[in-house]
């Protein structure tokens, strides 16, 4: 009985894994084919290993409509890192202030942040653009990142973690003469390491995968992220060079997938304990 059910589980999981892997494997193979062959619909599940040079070629020279892919990868990486680290930093500080101090308007401050919990940039896109124009942020790296750094989710998550830190720990630290910043650095941060790692994964992926905001905020090719670049490449209807598109798509997947798989253990733990 149990053997039969295990067999079924293997079947379901194997099928699921295959459904996830198939598109990416096909993209990898397509990258190594002749663009003309792809146009004729001659996709194959076997890559042409002698054509792996296409990856180097797009890295160095890009493709139709876009600059070198290494540049776009660098912009994406800088953007993802700035958003992830920026969000984590300001959220830790604000959550720390709200939990470990009493100050005037503490509740007001918390609610001001809290209300923005789920207001994604997509719903306030045009007015945010107008504000950016007033600040002369259009077409700058700050413009690409700073508006996406404000976030209530991370603050809430850290608040939850901090509230659970036992009072005794704080009392002991104060007895030892530790000030607030010392306590933050020596006790609170190490205790929250799992949340930090999980949040880093989530926010890195969030930053890397942005599409609508960069499309609007940064029109100069200098600031093209790799996700923007790919859609630009297929936007040229007449002469889409599918092999280059797919090579770029594969390259664009590698960094965020590495981050997720590499930090998997932390990510799963932090994600499911903290609810997003």
């Amino acid at each position: 009985m149990s053997g039969c059910r295990d067999w079924l589980a293997h079947l379901v999981l194997g099928l699921g894994a295959a459904l996830f892997l198939l598109p990416i494997w096909l993209a990898f193979c397509a990258a190594t084919l002749d663009p003309a062959a792809i146009d004729r619909g001659e996709l194959s599940l076997v890559p042409r290993l002698d054509h792996l040079g296409v990856f180097l070629e797009v890295l160095r020279h890009g493709g139709p409509g876009v600059g070198p892919v290494w540049r776009m990868l660098a912009v994406s990486a800088a953007m993802a890192l700035a958003i992830a680290l920026g969000k984590i930093a300001i959220s830790i500080l604000s959550a720390y202030a709200v939990v470990f101090f009493r100050f005037p308007f503490r509740r007001t401050a918390f609610w001001i942040i809290f209300v923005t919990l789920m207001l994604p940039v997509e719903v306030r896109i045009i007015p945010t653009y107008a504000v950016m124009a007033d600040l002369h942020f259009i077409d700058t790296f700050q413009g690409l990142t700073v508006p996406l750094i404000a976030s209530a989710t991370a603050t809430l998550l850290f608040r939850q973690t901090f509230v659970a830190i036992p009072d005794e720990l704080l009392e002991a630290a104060r007895m030892d003469g530790a000030g607030p910043l010392r306590f933050l650095w020596d006790v609170v941060l190490p205790v929250s390491a799992a949340n930090l790692a999980a949040l880093f994964v989530i926010l890195f992926v969030y930053g890397w995968n942005q599409y609508l905001w960069p499309l609007l905020a940064a029109t100069s090719p200098r600031l093209d992220t790799v996700v923007i670049g790919i859609v630009k490449m297929i936007g040229i209807d007449t002469s889409t060079e599918w092999n280059k598109v797919m090579a770029t798509a594969v390259l664009a997947l590698v960094p965020p997938v590495l981050v997720v798989v590499g930090l998997q253990r932390w990510f799963v733990k932090g994600l499911t304990e903290g609810e997003k």
Binding site: A17, A27, N209, Y211, V231, I234, P256, V257, V261, V268
Partner: peptide, 21 residues
């Protein structure tokens, strides 16, 4: 591992991969 990695895929890139299918 095989089932969580697509979490990292950008929606726009998922679209490009599915075009190929």
């Amino acid at each position: 591992v095989l089932l969580i990695w697509p979490y990292a895929v950008a929606p726009a890139i998922a679209a490009v991969l599915w075009l190929l299918l």
